[in-house]
Amino acid sequence: MAIENLHDFLVTYFTTNHCQVNSNKKDGTLNVQLTEEMDERLMNRPFYWQYVRKLNQVGSPLELKITTQYNKANKDRAYLSFGTERFNKICNDALSKGRFTKLYQSIAPRQQTALYPWLIINVKMSYIGKQQEEDLKSYGIHLINGTIIDQAFEWLEQKEWTTTIPDFCYPITPLIQVRNGYLRIEHFILEQLQAKQHQWAEASYQHLQEEIQLLNYSKDREQSVDENHYLKEKENLKAIYQPKISLQVINGGMFYLAEP
């Protein structure tokens, strides 16, 4: 599900954000006529926009010229790839714009149709220790009957969505409060984590103990090590090896589906 082709992704990204895009996939070039909003977000010229507003003028957004091929880049055409500063900006922009949502299934019924509420959250699970791993999981909870599903995103992707309630449709008010639904999903995740064997954590913890032993050994033998430094060093070792799991919600929101 990750971005497979950067070029295609960029075209999608900019058109989604209402920019005119002229692109040539063969040589990786993209000419993007930015909108005012996108210029402000990506082009790093806050003063320009500040003055334009102050003087009550109409600003003219820039045309962004980029290429996804390193050897096609030049003075006027910047190289854009994973890891460049501009790409990071685009990522952050995309992440922040797509964080919260409320969507209705796009259908055209002939009679009154109920739409059932779901809370969907996509959550990034990070397992941090000696080795580090990350996982993106998608969960959903039916806010009437409390059913919890995973791989929710793949399921949602097969349907069409709109931001307004379609004609003849009426959304049902959740029986389970949204916040409560969220807590139920979290509980579900934690239970799953509890049930798992975490060998990575064991290994990392073991390693931490070994490192601390070494540190203690040198502290006991050498007079020159001062207490403060010893404690700091110990903290730093913990920062590396102490096993941690963190949950971070990437995005989520309310989805109203026609099927009960």
Binding site: M1, A2, I3, F9, T12, Y13, T16, F82, C91, A94, L95, K97, G98, R99, F100, T101, K102, L103, N122, K124, S126, Q132, E133, E134, D135, L136, S138, F153, E157, E160, W161, T162, T163, V178, I250, N251, G253, M254
Partner: peptide, 25 residues
């Protein structure tokens, strides 16, 4: 949701998901 703010449409929601997936370790 309570304050009726403009929320993401499906396209933006999907983009964010793909970006997050790309940035995973």
């Amino acid at each position: 949701i309570d304050q009726n703010q403009t929320l993401a449409d499906w396209k933006h929601f999907k983009l964010a998901y793909h970006v997050a997936d790309t940035l995973l370790i």
